[in-house]
Amino acid sequence: MLYTWVKTVVGLLLAANFSVPLLTVLCNRYLWEEPMAVVAGNMSFTSFLCGIFIMLIGIYDTFSFQSIPLCRFLQYSGFAVGIAFKMAQVCAAFDQFVAVMYPLRHYSIMIRTRPWLFAAIWCTYAVQIIIGLFAHFLDMETFSEHVGKSSDNSTFTGCRWETALSNVYAIFVEVEMVSFSAMTASLFLYVGVVGHQLKTRLLRHAQQLRRNSRGGGVDENKSFFDNYRAFKKIVAVLSLTVSLDVVAPILRISSRWYPQPTLNGLLHQVRLLGFIFEGWAYGLLNAKLRAAYRKILCGRFTRVVVAPVPGSCRKVDG
């Protein structure tokens, strides 16, 4: 019973948390022209939906509903938005790649690729739903049924992924999770290494210019240094959660031989709480998004047109 309440509360917290950045992007049309805001908005929307489905699953178990179609719908939908979030995370990593590697062309490149990023996120979601429909109507073998062949007693109770998802989809979704996490980590690692090398060369060049009394230097590369500082902050937050996205699937795969439903469930909820830091960390690095967040949190509903100044709830309205 305690675990069902944990799921319900975690889902409620996720939905409530991401309703703020989602509302911020939806209520400020000028943010729709900001590629970073579009990606952040999609991350918030997928996390918001994920929280809703987790909360509904918790309510389902709390009241002991007995509806296989409903349980499967909630589980497949929850996993669908979760995987869509992982694709949104890849899109965020791509945005940072462009920001650091092509700082002066960042906006123009992202404007052109924004529709493709949006399509990638929601096509990923659609694929999961389609697979879920096929699995349900074909009544494919679930993970718990597959494990139950070698055991008389089932260790899985309630509306769990083990009892709702087909065994084939359970493998597919783990591969997706690890693959998207690996893509995100690879982009971050590449940008981190190349960005550090470029930063070192630019600083060395700036020092040479100063010694030669020719001026210039760091200021000429301000866009790069600003983007690289923001990139390091994002990596500092995402590194832990991306690591969990690699470790958690390995533990779930091991459950095929050593079932640990409670441990896997609690680790899953910890990972979901990490969504809170991911979405906010990415959005807060954009000046317009920061100002819009402040406007919403401080109860101001006029359009924000300038970046905020230090201090909470100062006037930033146009």
Rank of each mutant, 00 (worst) to 15 (best):
149 K>C: 05
298 C>A: 06
18 F>R: 00
265 G>Q: 03
142 T>V: 00
168 V>M: 10
235 V>M: 08
252 R>T: 11
108 S>R: 14
164 A>E: 07
183 M>F: 15
147 V>I: 15
13 L>V: 14
86 K>P: 00
209 L>Y: 04
14 L>Q: 08
253 I>K: 05
99 A>W: 01
164 A>Q: 02
171 I>N: 08
48 F>I: 06
180 F>Y: 15
221 N>A: 14
135 A>V: 08
148 G>L: 02
96 Q>Y: 15
295 K>N: 13
47 S>I: 09
105 R>Y: 10
275 F>K: 06
60 Y>E: 00
206 A>N: 08
151 S>D: 09
248 A>G: 03
141 E>R: 10
299 G>H: 02
131 I>P: 04
40 A>F: 07
245 D>K: 00
43 M>Q: 09
288 K>N: 14
209 L>G: 03
23 L>K: 10
57 I>M: 14
123 C>Y: 08
116 W>G: 13
249 P>T: 01
290 R>M: 11
187 L>Q: 01
59 I>Y: 09
174 E>C: 13
18 F>A: 01
218 V>C: 07
199 K>E: 12
108 S>L: 09
297 L>F: 10
154 S>M: 00
96 Q>D: 06
195 G>L: 00
85 F>Y: 12
76 Y>I: 08
240 L>D: 07
286 N>V: 11
262 T>I: 15
21 P>K: 07
210 R>T: 12
206 A>L: 04
53 F>P: 01
55 M>C: 15
177 M>N: 11
197 Q>A: 11
237 V>H: 08
44 S>N: 03
192 G>T: 05
102 Y>P: 04
86 K>N: 14
70 L>H: 01
248 A>Y: 15
13 L>R: 01
190 Y>N: 00
90 V>N: 01
196 H>N: 11
272 L>I: 05
250 I>L: 11
274 G>H: 00
175 V>T: 08
150 S>D: 06
218 V>P: 00
195 G>E: 02
134 F>R: 13
18 F>H: 12
108 S>C: 07
215 G>Q: 08
312 S>E: 13
217 G>H: 04
318 G>T: 07
57 I>K: 14
176 E>A: 06
278 E>V: 11
280 W>E: 04
233 K>N: 11
101 M>V: 12
37 A>G: 02
284 L>M: 09
110 M>V: 02
182 A>E: 03
166 S>T: 05
300 R>A: 13
15 A>P: 00
55 M>N: 12
203 L>N: 09
231 F>L: 12
231 F>P: 04
316 V>F: 06
112 R>G: 03
226 D>L: 12
74 L>F: 10
207 Q>Y: 11
284 L>T: 02
232 K>R: 13
98 V>H: 02
250 I>K: 03
285 L>M: 09
304 V>Q: 07
184 T>Q: 06
128 Q>F: 06
294 R>M: 12
69 P>Q: 13
300 R>L: 09
162 E>A: 15
22 L>N: 05
89 Q>D: 07
267 L>F: 11
26 L>I: 10
264 N>E: 11
198 L>R: 15
305 V>Q: 10
25 V>D: 04
189 L>C: 12
230 A>C: 12
103 P>Y: 06
180 F>T: 02
4 T>P: 04
214 R>Q: 15
155 T>F: 12
99 A>F: 00
13 L>M: 11
228 Y>P: 05
161 W>Q: 03
216 G>I: 08
25 V>G: 05
261 P>M: 04
31 L>T: 03
291 A>E: 04
49 L>A: 07
9 V>K: 06
166 S>W: 01
60 Y>L: 01
